[in-house]
Design a protein around this nucleic acid. Structure first.
Lengths: 221, 221
DNA sequence: GATACCATCTTGGTATCCCAAAACGGTATC
DNA sequence: GATACCGTTTTGGGATACCAAGATGGTATC
């Protein structure tokens, strides 16, 4: 039974789903018994998750990476670089009809849609948009960045208005891309990323005390 | 004895130094005996090198990643995005005196300098320049991209003139950065990356037959 | 001579064992 | 009561054992 991928996937889900809190200590032995696997696949999973930035070494042991506000700000700069580059590439493509598929993703969310779905699609928008560029490296960069942001975005308190605003911005970006207006698309995407970062960092900084009370390690910017 | 890092480092050196050719098959057992380690550290090393793109899975086994010309072109686009972003950041810093340290790296190469040193410093220029930005993600992106390019750049036939040209371009980039002229620095860096890519891909495409004869797998663009 | 088939070997994946070092806890001393 | 010291336990790193699936090679058949 190929439990390697299974352990990795399950552990990642538990970390991203905050079932294991940021900052918590992990022992290989605990993971082993928790998933009924032996230490070899557990090791492989930890090594992979380490490169994703979800776990890190804590001396000799392992720790679920804390939420790091300074890191979130750096990621925003990184995202801006790679997402804008990908979007500009996409704008130069002859066939940009694939943006409609992404628009359909946005459309699939309405008031009945559970919060997890909004969260997932909000990330997939950026990931799939990057994939359209056809550049594997830009795509992976965006995907990995979104993975790192995932927990923080989940902890963010987002009101209905903020979500509506994000969706409107997403749609505007797609509209510019559909027209092939690279400069406009890039401007909109940059503003969207910067704005999202500001709201995210502000929200987490405000909630920091409460998050710590819930046992979540949050490192200030 | 912590042989894990040792195995990883030695294996990476052998791959980057082309002692193991692109496309060659690797068995965990061979690595094990070659470095006198057991399979646990070998496995860890392979998993790490896999994320660096230096080895890949070949069905059930492992293979040293071939040189992929299409990939080299994608990396150039990726590099342009992240290196330019990092350089622009650096140009906005109040204290840009650290560029002098990088200039000193360039100065340390003269006609007596062995080829390996030129090669290493040619990469370190870009890596250290990215580090100055202070953005860990941009830095890592550049470092990883240069690692992936390393073997291809080593195989490139570069004449004296090409090296001199690259060094002149490096110096011009530093000069613009020192002045804080972000637009100019970005323009120069973009041109440098694109030019390097063209020369690299052209050189490898021309030598492809010879490289294959040496047992190096080279995948066309 | 070519090909299909079978025994064998090799190999990656997994489980288990061993070890040294670090973490922990209890006790004795000040 | 605080602290320094020491024995015990836990833990990650490494080594080894085992297995099933795939590769290999030789043989027998046509």
């Amino acid at each position: 039974m190929s439990q390697m991928q299974s352990v990795e996937k399950q552990l990642r889900q538990m970390i991203l789903g905050l079932e294991i809190g940021p900052g918590e200590k992990l022992t290989e032995r605990w993971i082993e018994s928790r998933f009924g696997a032996s230490r070899t696949p557990v090791r492989a999973a930890l090594l992979r998750l380490e490169t994703e930035g979800l776990v890190g070494r804590d001396g000799r042991g392992w720790t679920v990476s804390p939420i790091n506000l300074a890191e979130l700000e750096q990621i925003a700069v990184y995202r801006e670089a790679v997402e804008v580059a990908a979007l500009r590439l996409t704008c130069t493509l002859a066939d940009r009809s694939a943006v409609d598929v992404i628009e359909a993703m946005l459309d699939s969310c309405d008031t009945d849609t559970p919060r997890e779905e909004w969260h997932r699609i909000g990330m997939d928008f950026h990931i799939e948009l990057a994939r359209l560029s056809g550049n594997e490296f830009l795509f992976r960069a965006v995907r990995d960045a979104m993975t790192r942001l995932s927990r923080a975005r989940w902890l963010e308190v987002r009101d209905e208005a903020a979500l509506a605003r994000a969706w409107a911005e997403h749609r505007a970006i797609l509209a510019a891309a559909r027209l092939g207006d690279a400069d406009q698309a890039a401007r909109l995407l940059s503003a969207h990323i910067v704005g999202s970062r500001d709201r995210l960092v502000t929200s987490l900084a405000n909630d920091r005390r409460g998050l710590r009370a819930r046992g979540f390690a949050v490192i200030a910017a």
